[in-house]
């Protein structure tokens, strides 16, 4: 248990949270390993878990016509999406491991209940997500403009 707490406290997303809070989170978490090219979850599936990536990279894919388009890769220190936080709790993309990945998996429903009961903990996590979502949005916007000047 305390090893998991140590892993969480080292993780970029959870850095700075109190040991009490980390212990509570660790209580609903398990560590998992996923092989390369394995699909962790599919687009449209129920978002019943939260994942923190410890190491390895994961590709986020969208189904576009007949293509599986990778729109983002996430790496160690990042959280894998937030669809589990908000109804209808459905993944808006597929997650495929690029290589062997080490993750921490949290039960989503248990996490949501925990945040409702422990508002301080909920605030700490939501605060961090707000930061992640804003910077992810800013980065994604740059993928929409002609960032590399390739348009003819």
């Amino acid at each position: 248990m305390s090893e998991l707490v140590a892993t969480l406290s080292d993780h970029d997303f959870f850095r700075g949270m109190s040991e009490d809070h980390l212990a509570k989170l660790a209580g609903v978490a398990t560590e998992i390993e996923v092989d390369g090219d394995k699909v962790l979850f599919g687009e449209g599936g129920t978002a019943d878990a939260a994942y923190a990536i410890v190491s390895g990279s994961i590709a986020l894919e969208l189904s576009v016509a007949t293509r599986q388009l990778i729109v983002q890769t996430l790496h160690g220190g990042e959280m894998l999406g937030w669809s589990w936080l908000y109804p209808p709790y459905r993944w808006s993309f597929s997650a495929v491991a690029n290589e062997p990945v080490h993750l921490i998996r949290f039960e989503a429903e248990q996490l949501r209940d925990m945040f409702d009961n422990d508002c301080a903990l909920g605030y700490e996590v939501m605060k961090r997500f707000a930061g992640v979502i804003t910077s992810r949005l800013a980065a994604t916007r740059l993928q929409l403009v002609d960032f590399y000047g390739n348009a003819n």
Binding site: A59, Q68, L69, I70, V71, Q72, H75, L142, Q143
Partner: peptide
């Protein structure tokens, strides 16, 4: 190396190049 978008089969990074700085 990172790209803005790729088809499945690309095992490298996808995302804007500034995201590589932190890594």
């Amino acid at each position: 190396i990172t790209v803005d978008a790729a088809d499945r089969g690309w095992h490298g990074s996808v995302g804007v190049v500034t995201r590589l700085i932190g890594r």
